[in-house]
Structure formats: C-alpha cells, structure tokens
C-alpha cells in the first residue's frame, strides 16, 4: 500500500519584480499592496526587462526603489508627458505612469487629460487616497465633501473649493482611451479585482491597443488620522459611494 507523503509548496511569495527591501510607507498604507500587484502582473506577463516605470511626486516618489524595472522620475504632475516621450521613443517597451491624486488631478490635470486624449499607448495607475499624504495631510482634489484635512479643518466646503473630481468619469468623456476602471485595495476581493484590472491595462499595452487608466482607491491611515482597519472601513463607507467601483470602458 503506497504511503502518503506530504510536501510543502510555496504558493505565495515575493514577486521577482518587487525588491526585497522594507518599504518606507506607513503601516496600513495601500501603496505597498499596489506595488505588489504591479510586480505580480509584470512577472506574470514576463515584461520585467522591457518595462519603464515613471515614478511620480508624493509618497510613492521612491517607487523605483521597490520595483525592479527601469525607471524615470518625472516632475510633479508631468508623469504622463514623460511617459509619452518614453513610449514614443521606445515603442516596444511597456511604460507605466504611477501617480497619486495630487500629482494626477491637481498640478498634472492638463498632462493627464491630453495624454488620454491623444490615446498614448501607456498605462496610468492612479492611486486615489483623497488626501496629500507626503506633505502632511492637506486637501486633495479628490478629498470628499465635508472631509477634514489640514487645509480644510472644518471639512471640505464645495461652495469654496468645489466637489471631489472623479477622474474615471472625466476621462470616460474622451474618445481615445481603451480601458478605464476603478478598483480598491480595501479587501482581498477588491485587491484581486484590482490585480485583474492592472493585468488588463498592461496587456493592452503589450498588445499595442492604447491608453489604459486604472484608478485604485487606497488607504492613508496617517493622513486620515485613523487606525489602519478603521481606515479600511471609512474607505468602504465614505469613499466608495462617491467613487463607485467598476469598469467604465473596455474596448
């Protein structure tokens, strides 16, 4: 009678494209999860050698220390313009622009919209945490109505500073983008969905389809002044109704 042998199999470990170093993000920050998803997708598509990451300004300015791919640093908000240049000069590479809300929707609004409108064949990862994390928790273009931040201590007042900008819906009015989706990293389920969206965005580029935009709602426990798990609940209760998850376009 044959005897059962039990073998140990590693089923989840650090992706090759993610450097084996501790990251500088605060406990419970969503950037770590998103970096990991990006690295997993790069590994699964086998494009580590041909990927160029355009790092933004903000907390994730040091993304090039964590993702083991070629990189380029762009001035605040200029990541889609730099990515445009890189992609046009190196059409065979996969160019990823990784940006936060202050970067993409405040100082970089013009670059964002025009790169999308030109249909540049790049993938934009937009990390939306409704606050300026690195500079100490100031109001961002995506801060929610009545959300208290350092620069809106009585809550964001739309009569004064307007309503939060919905980037996906804004870009969905343009003709050129081929893929627009909003995801979140608040639970295992939404993280797996976010991974599928990133995968699709990168595959669109490998196949030469066009501009892909993936917005990812992320936690900033430090900026929001909450415990990490409290931040997850706040995001699901307050942010998701304003920024509904789902796919807006997939051509």
């Amino acid at each position: 009678m044959p005897v059962d042998t039990v073998q140990e199999k590693v089923v989840y470990e650090r992706p090759r494209s993610l450097a084996d170093v501790p990251n500088h993000y605060c406990p419970g920050c969503g950037h770590g999860i998103i970096h990991k998803l990006l690295a997993q997708c790069i590994d699964e598509l086998g494009i580590q050698e041909s990927t160029i990451l355009v790092a933004p300004v903000g907390c994730s300015v040091l993304a090039y220390n964590y993702l083991r791919v070629d990189g380029c640093e762009a001035a605040h908000g200029r990541a889609p313009a730099v990515a445009t240049g890189l992609k046009r000069v190196h059409p065979d590479t996969t160019v990823i622009s990784y940006q936060g809300d202050g970067d993409l929707l405040a100082i970089g609004t013009a670059e964002t919209i025009h790169a999308a409108n030109r249909g540049e064949k790049i993938t934009v990862i937009f990390v939306n945490n409704a606050i300026y994390g690195m500079t100490g928790g100031q109001m961002a273009p995506t801060s929610l109505q009545a959300q208290k931040t350092k620069t809106s201590p009585y809550g964001r007042n739309p009569a004064d500073v307007g309503f939060p900008i919905r980037a996906c819906e804004l870009l969905n009015t343009l003709q050129a983008p081929v893929f627009i989706e909003r995801c979140a990293v608040s639970s295992v389920k939404t993280i797996l969905k976010a991974k599928r969206a990133i995968m699709k965005g990168l595959r669109n580029q490998v196949e030469g389809k066009g501009y892909s935009f993936i917005e990812i709602l992320s936690m900033c426990p430090t900026g929001w002044g909450m415990e990490p798990r409290e931040a997850v609940s706040w995001m699901e209760a307050e942010m998701v109704p304003v920024f509904p998850l789902g796919n807006l376009r997939d051509r």
Partner: peptide
C-alpha cells in the same frame, strides 16, 4: 487553510504562504 488572504492584503510583503500537498496514497 492556506487561503492566502493575509498575504494578499499585507502591504509589506511580510507573509509567505506554504501549502501542504499530499502526494501518492489512494
């Protein structure tokens, strides 16, 4: 159960998951 939930949500990649696989037997 090696479901990987903890590893998937860990922002610091501090968790590895090892699954026990039975080989052979009936």
């Amino acid at each position: 159960t090696a479901c990987m939930s903890c590893a998937i949500i860990c922002p610091d990649m501090a968790i590895r998951i090892i699954r026990l696989v039975t080989i052979g037997g009936e």
